[in-house]
Structure formats: C-alpha cells, structure tokens
Design a protein around this nucleic acid. Structure first.
Lengths: 330, 330
DNA sequence: CTGTTAGCGCTTTCAA
DNA sequence: TTGAAAGCGCTAACAG
C-alpha cells in the first residue's frame, strides 16, 4: 500500500509550488497555459488523483450526495436511482447509496445533500435526523415541513382520480381494492384518495369493507385473489400497485378467467419489468420516473449552487395513464 | 448552514485541550474516567459528530467500503447487498454503493476496500482500475489474478453438475439450454460447465445447437419457449437462471402444458421473490447468499485488520440443489 | 504569473 | 493525567 501521489509530490517533480500545481489542475486562470500543460502531464504520468478527504476538509464540500434507503431489496426502484445518479453526475455530483443502519454517516459531514428514498422509520426518528442535519434534503416518499427539505412525491391523488375514471367507464361495477401496509406513504395516499372519491361520488359504498392487504406484492395477493375470483363477488380489481395486479392475473390464469373480459383490473406504477410477460396489457398509472428524477436532482443542485434558494416544500410529480386492455368498457 | 461543532469547540467549553477531548471520545486510557464522562456529556449536548474527512485525512482510513455496481436496476441482487452491508456494519465498516460512472470516486482515496459486484466493463478497464487501486478488492463475478484481489464467486461448476444429475435421472431426455449474454460471467461459466459435461458424457450431443439466448430474463425467454414447446422438439429445459425458467413456465401455462409432467425444467439461483407465484416449485440451485456475503465481508475485514494477510485468490461459494417438482423422474 | 503560508478538524507523539 | 504542537493533503488569500 505505497502512498498515493500528492500535490506536494508533483510540485517537487515539476519544480513549482503546491499552489501552482493546485491552480493548474483546477483550471484556474492564475497560471500560464504552458505551466498548466506541463503540470497536467506530470500529474497524469504520476497517476495523481486528488484526495477527497483533504479537499472536503478544506472546502467544506464533498460533491457527494447521499441516498438513504431502507433495504437494497424490496420495492426498490433501481431505474429511478440510476436516473437520479446520471443527472447528478451531469452536474458534477456523485450519488452514493447507503443503507438504513448507516444513517450515522450522514452526521459525519460526508455529504453535501441528502435524498431520503424508500426509507421507513418512525416519524420521530426521521424528524430528528432532519432536524440535526442542516444540508439540503429531498424526501421522495413523505411530506414533512422543514426549511431544508423539499418533498418530491408522486401525484397519487390525480392519478387515482384518472384510474377511477376507467372504473366509471367500465362495465364491471363490483369493485374491490388491494392495498399495501399502512406505513407505506404511497399506499396510504392512494387509498386515502380512493376513499375521498367514493365518499363524494358513491357514498353508499364503504370501500374499507372491500379492501384487502396484498402487501404490495404478487405473492401475498395471489391466494386472496384466487378466493375472491372463484367466489365471483367482485369483477373490478383496483390494485394500488402493479405487483398486486399481477398476483390477480396469475390467479385468473389458473381459474381460466379472462382479464378484461370476465373482470377488469387496474394497477399503479407501470412497472414493465415485472409484468411484461402478462397478457393482456395492464391499464395502470405511469409514475414518470424521468420527470421525477429530474425534479429531485434539480432541487438539490439548485439549492447547492444557490444556497439562498429556499426549499419549495412539496412538488407533485404528474403521472400518466397507460391504457392496456385490462378494463372492459361499457 | 451554521457550522457543526468541532473538537475545538468542545475543548473550549470543557476547558481542556483538544487532545484530551480526542482521548476521551475515543475511549483511550490516557484520560481519567471523570474527565471522560464530563467531556462525553458536553459532546452529546453540543451534538458533536466527528468529521469523517478530517479523521480520514489524519488516519488514512475511512472505514468506508465501496461497492461498485453497474446499474441499480437489472439483475441486481438486493438481498445479497443487504447481507454484506450488515456483516460489514458489525465489524465497524460502512458499505456505500456507487454506480458505474462514478468509478473515479475509487481513485480519490475515499474507500478502505472495494467490492466489485455485477459490474460489466471491458476487461482492460477493470484491470486498469485494479492495477492503480492498491486497496483490498473482492470480485464477485470475475476471476482475475492480482495480489490485492480475492475472487469470491459462485461454484457454478459443481452446481451445474448437480443440476445435470437431475437431467440424467429424468424421463425427459430431449434437452435444450437457455443462457444469457456471453459477457455475463456466471452465464458463461455455467454454459462452459454444461459443455464440458456433455463432451465427456454425451459427446454425440452438441449442445451449442440446442442453446437459446433468453437474455437472463423471463420476457425474452417467453416467446422462444412458446415456439419450442409447441413444436415439441424438446422436453427438458435447462435454464441458466430462474428468470428464464419462469418465462418457460408462462409459455407452458398458455399452452396448457404441465410443468414436471409434460416436460421437465431446471433453473439456477433460487430467486423466490420472482417465482413464488409459479407452480409447481422449480428445481434449482441455491446460491447460498448468506455464505457468500459472509465470505466477502470476512475477506475484506481480515485483510483490512491484518494487512499482511494475503488475498486468497479464488473462493468458490457452494450451492445447494433445491428440489421442486419441475422434473419428472424415471 | 508564481510562491509562501495559514488553516480546515482530527490524531498522536512528546513533553510537562 | 493533561497539553502543545506537528502534520495528513488540499485551497486560497496575500505577497512578490
């Protein structure tokens, strides 16, 4: 483990001061083009790479953005993370993802900003974390009111409204709901929106009595769906995410029931990876990952580059209905 | 963004020197128990958290272990990452995951060690990266010979041998293979093992002629499988991972063919999350994530704590056959 | 245009 | 048992 080359090493070889080397490598105008070239060459030859710790200590910024996630497993949306990473990269920031119990890293002044994604903890833990962390924060599945946090979340409410429009237009009227756990922000929000809608337009129908917990997964949904489908009590399955919808698909396939004919079904998320082998195509709401990741990156970068920029509080990322053939219309 | 408290701040308040504060907080014997307590209390009160950059600069170690991955999407095994993270955590190291194009972070002396997982690049890129990086490295899907790298990989060969034993015992003899791309280390290794086996035991059967590219996914596999199943040319589907096997399942279901009766099939990985809704249970090889992650963490920690420990070159993590009902025996 | 120097926050040697 | 001080590698203010 022989030492990495440092600025001092280069300075010695180039016969200049460390300052000059620093200027040269940071492309600052203080140095002549000739020296710059010479120093850059030497640096490359000596395989120089700046020491991030030293830079960070000196400048009080790391250009590192931390993303805190619960688990690398689970409902974790990789494409979204990739998108955010790329956008931040473009602005010269690096995304580093850390798990749950490494949250203490955040306190060690390693990150310039923070993205909290898919991170479930008690509200008080999260609040405490935010309160002692003064850097810009984006919450992607929460709505909390702090001066340094932007909440950038899916517009669940309008998406649900659009999805329920499909229900209104459908021939199938006996509706039931599949939701996930109560402490999933998105599942809770979506269900709330359903309730509000039904209280307003179909007050006679108490949807809580027709709601099942599919735990946001196809596996837990499948047996429930199989039972419900055989009983023929429902013919519209309103699923609060796609995975659960595919659990229903599977059950239907085994019962030789035709999706979009014998019954209707909608999902949420437009997660093609999981469902591309299912036919017919599912009618669902696309979370527009691209817009979402752009907003997240933009929020952080602008607050980082212009510290006076205030957090914008809550941004609702629009969704788009993707029309499949899983709903039978009137 | 008012400044974080530093050792100096605490020293001032406690009326001691920074050295004493450092001793106290690092639980070193040089300081009296009384002062230690007093200082610790003050530190907590002042919400002190050590600055990692400063620590790292001074000690030349960060206790940060970087994991380099290709994409956060794809064939990325979250459970495995979680396991590694937990084990490292237990030894006092934090895992941070970074994507593809942020590989330059590695050169910035931020990490004490490196895990390269699921990272596809040209061999020369990877080699160059390893050569200029002097810290301990674990490769999880590659076999490269460098003094600072351990290759800790699935024992594909013995797994394939065990899987092919199922084929030998099966009633179904018309075998075909589903593999992924050639630059997937695991897919390549597995296919190689199949070839070696057939050359030895069934030299008359040239398996390349009966091999299809399912791109390691169920979606690309599905249409190919549907065609093959209808043609009835094959009745044993040997899939180099589970996802492709589920593509075949789906095709079979649509053709009303019974898995384990009309034809046999095996997988690889034992990825329950993806397949738990498929019946009957797939016969596959379990990659024993737990053993794997332990080995990875142990290798790094021991090399970190005892720098004289040499890399052990290649460790093959054993697999275990999981018997399902997808093979019809004689 | 180039060099000298202070100092970021921390650990650790050496002296008291 | 405590403190003074050096220095990790870097940036930037200031002097020349």
């Amino acid at each position: 483990m022989n030492k990495q080359t440092s600025l001092t090493d280069i300075a010695r070889v180039a016969n200049v001061s460390v300052a000059t080397v620093s200027y040269a490598l940071n492309n600052r105008p203080e140095v002549s083009e000739k020296t710059r070239q010479r120093i850059k060459e030497i640096a490359t030859q000596m395989n120089y790479h700046p020491n991030k710790a030293a830079q960070g200590l000196r400048t009080h910024q790391s250009r590192l953005i931390g993303m805190l996630i619960n688990t690398f497993n689970s409902i974790f949306n990789g494409e979204l993370v990739d998108d955010i990473r790329k956008t931040l990269d473009h602005y010269g920031y690096s995304l580093v993802v850390i798990g749950n119990s490494n949250a203490d890293l955040i306190d060690s002044q390693l990150f310039d900003a923070l993205i909290i994604f898919n991170y479930t903890t008690t509200k008080s833990n999260l609040t405490a974390l935010i309160e002692r962390t003064k850097i810009p924060i984006v919450l992607m599945a929460n709505e909390l009111d702090f001066s340094n946090v932007d909440n950038i979340v899916i517009d669940n409410q309008s998406a649900i409204a659009n999805l329920l429009k499909q229900y209104e237009k459908s021939k199938h009227k006996k509706i039931c709901f599949f939701r996930g756990s109560r402490n999933s922000y998105n599942s809770a929000k979506r269900f709330e929106s359903c309730q509000t809608y039904f209280k307003k337009y179909h007050p006679e129908y108490n949807i809580s009595k027709h709601t099942f917990n599919g735990q946001l997964g196809s596996a837990p949904t499948y047996p429930i769906a199989k039972k419900l489908l055989s009983e023929k009590k429902y013919n519209f399955f309103f699923c609060l995410n796609d995975m659960m919808a595919y659990g229903v698909y599977r059950a239907a396939s085994e019962l030789h029931l035709k999706v979009g004919i014998d019954f209707s079904i909608t999902g949420f998320d437009n997660a093609p990876k999981s469902g591309e082998i299912y036919l017919p195509k599912l009618t669902t709401a696309d979370s527009q990952l691209n817009t979402w990741s752009q907003e997240v990156a933009k929020s952080l970068v602008s607050r980082l580059e212009h510290p006076e920029t205030p957090a914008q509080k809550t941004i609702f990322v629009p969704t788009k209905i993707v029309h499949g053939d899983s709903v039978l219309y009137d």
